[in-house]
Amino acid sequence: MSQAAWRNISIGVSGFIVLGLGALVIANPGKIFFSWTFFFEVLIGGLLAGTLYSLVALGFVLIFKASGVFNFAQGAMTLFAALSLVRLIEITNSILLSMALTVVIMMALAYVIERLVLRPLVNQDVIIMFMATIGMTFLIDGFGQLVWGSDVYPLNLGIPQDPFEVQGVLLNQFDLVAGAVAALLVAVLAVFFQKTRIGRALRAVADDNQAALSVGIPLRHIWFIVWTVSGLVALVAGIMWGTKSGVQFSLALIALKALPVLILGGLTSIPGAIIGGLIVGAGEKLAEVFIGPLFGGAIENWFAYVLALLFLLFRPQGLFGEKIIERV
């Protein structure tokens, strides 16, 4: 079938969904409680929760940009980083020292991955690399729990968690901190990618690794650097999620929540990961509160995937993904 036909069908289907939702809302007055203050409270809570998704998605984007590999193990790396940090704090009793050690551990992990997985698989199909990262997921999950234990560990770095009120809207201090951290991280990464020599080389490798090799950019260093950076992003994400809900195995599964974020924002865009995270975070909270009752609730868990599906139909490269350059 032609592309145009698909397009029409998908427009039809989504129109149908929107109309259906509208009808449901009109047919069920009184089931949904609505006030603007409440709306903003939900919206802001959702946006800030979304920054946590963004943090996870960011790790994916970094590796995908630089090596064209979709790193399924990002969630496992997040768990591993958080676990290492928590247990090291228990052992050393010093947050700063533990942070430093965890950074070293993530660098070592990046080195091992480059040496044992990426290097032997150089120039293989992306699907093979993807399969390799699935294998790594299990390995890192298992190794992490073997070394550090598999209980739920509370993580407290002294980030304030108290709620407070602005203009009648209830906010959580922790969410604000998470937002600020995400913003800072993005700013730093943006400067790194756009302005520095290494950042430029990373983008060059992402574009065409053969050509990068030919001008003398050593792929091995670049891969080590990019896996280290995304290991550090995983650490930040792990800290945030761990503080919010304790360091536990389910942390590895948030990687799945990052998938719709990536589809929305585009696999290759750092701002896309952030905005995708915000949209997913806000969208899922708003949907849960204001549309959820019509379906009997609990739509928060799948709403993001429906959103992602719609994006795949209309804008497969995501909001900010690199345009697929085609010259005619």
Binding site: R197, R200, R203, A204, A211, V215
Partner: peptide
């Protein structure tokens, strides 16, 4: 490349999402 031998690959192989100037800068990586 550091020793002074560099290849220009068949089919050009520029970095498509980098500007011309960024391509040149990438060439100066070493």
């Amino acid at each position: 490349v550091v020793k002074g031998v560099i290849q220009v690959m068949e089919g050009r192989h520029c970095f498509p999402h980098l500007t011309v100037e960024e391509n040149l800068l990438a060439g100066a990586y070493t």
